[in-house]
Design a protein around this nucleic acid. Structure first.
Lengths: 201, 201
DNA sequence: GTAAAACTTTCAGGATCTGCAATATTTCAG
DNA sequence: CTGAAATATTGCAGATCCTGAAAGTTTTAC
């Protein structure tokens, strides 16, 4: 994929400051804890004003959380482009594997991020969580794929939420194991348990 | 159950102010939106200082979220007291039904709360969410029941997260339907889909 | 080269949230 | 009933969070 090319100088600089702010936020909070770092600290580390920080992120926490909605559209595309005869849960698994590869590509950053989440539990509710724009988008795509009106059966909402839970558990296990196993394998494991109806192991 | 008895005057008053603060927060935010209500507004409505508000809740949002960890212990008891041969997912379903009854018993308050959540999506990530003390406790109970070391297989984490997702979806459907259906039925539906492995409908 | 568009900064200010010390209330023992 | 001990409430100072508006700076595009 194209990632850093095809951008004017302006957008390149914007992307740079954004990632610099994210990186600074992560490393500082990893060192001193969420409460031990102020927005001004983060901004100074990147040599911008704290007002500029808030031009990029609506809150200190948001600088730690990562892409989120940015990739929502891309995720949905993955769902859409799968053949219609692929079952919903299988489609969600494949989508999650793609996302897992993205995570693996930024291995160190994600491991650091997950460590920060573990050390600051108040962040956990926002890990791969419900109620986001991302979830809404995926739910809509699932509904389309299953041929269901949104808000009638609850199936798209549940399938999506369960898939996100599977992905979240895989991420946490991955982090707990020091990033040693393949994240994609852990994702597969979780989806296999889901598809089997979560029988007693 | 005993709920309001067996408390000294002091604790009774504390409980009163707490519930009064919750109620005021909910009604005010339902009227004016999250951003349109300050902590001082809420405190004044109950005739206490805003400092006192923060003695009860760590943040404005927390006054809206409801019991949460309060009932964690009780939920786990429900899990523990079920016979050991009840499968995990079935046990989680039964536990969720108990919780559903609690919600039904405070029907109006919960419908209002859910409306507030819908109207202020930034609250949604904290609805029945992961990363809480409650989830940790349930996960531990599930692990005990399944005879699994925590953090080895990921099964307890996933089963718990999926159950919470099922409950959350049921709540949202219940709210969207104006509280008309039986919440317990929606919970059963969601768990049935989970137990079946989320097949295409 | 210049004008428009977009980004950063400064500044003012309201709101959130936390210690701390003072005050008021409740409890409980005598 | 009364006086201490325990506990809750309050006011206050202060750090931090976050936002709008206006001014200044850089980038873009013609």
């Amino acid at each position: 994929m194209d990632s850093a090319d095809e951008l004017g100088r302006r957008d390149r600089k914007k992307l740079e400051t954004r990632t610099a702010l994210e990186r600074a936020a992560l490393t500082l909070v990893a060192e001193r804890g969420l409460a031990g770092v102020t927005v001004e600290d983060i901004a100074e580390a990147v040599d911008v004003s704290s007002r500029t920080f808030f031009n990029y992120f609506p809150s200190k926490e948001d600088a730690l959380i990562g892409p989120g909605p940015a990739s929502a559209a891309e995720l949905c595309e993955r769902l859409e482009e799968l053949p219609a005869d692929v079952p919903v849960l299988e489609a969600l698994r494949l989508m999650s594997r793609v996302e897992a590869e993205h995570v693996q590509q930024q291995r160190e950053q994600w491991l650091l991020r997950l460590k920060v989440f573990e050390q600051n539990p108040s962040l956990l509710p926002r890990l791969v969580t419900s109620g986001t724009e991302t979830e809404r988008a995926i739910t809509a795509a699932v509904a389309r794929r299953a041929g269901i009106e949104l808000g009638t059966s609850g199936y798209p909402e549940l399938a999506t939420a369960a898939a996100m839970a599977a992905f979240r558990v895989a991420m946490i296990r991955w982090s707990a194991a020091g990033g040693r196993p393949e994240l994609a394998d852990l994702v597969d494991e979780a989806f296999a348990q889901l598809a089997a109806g979560l029988p007693n192991p």
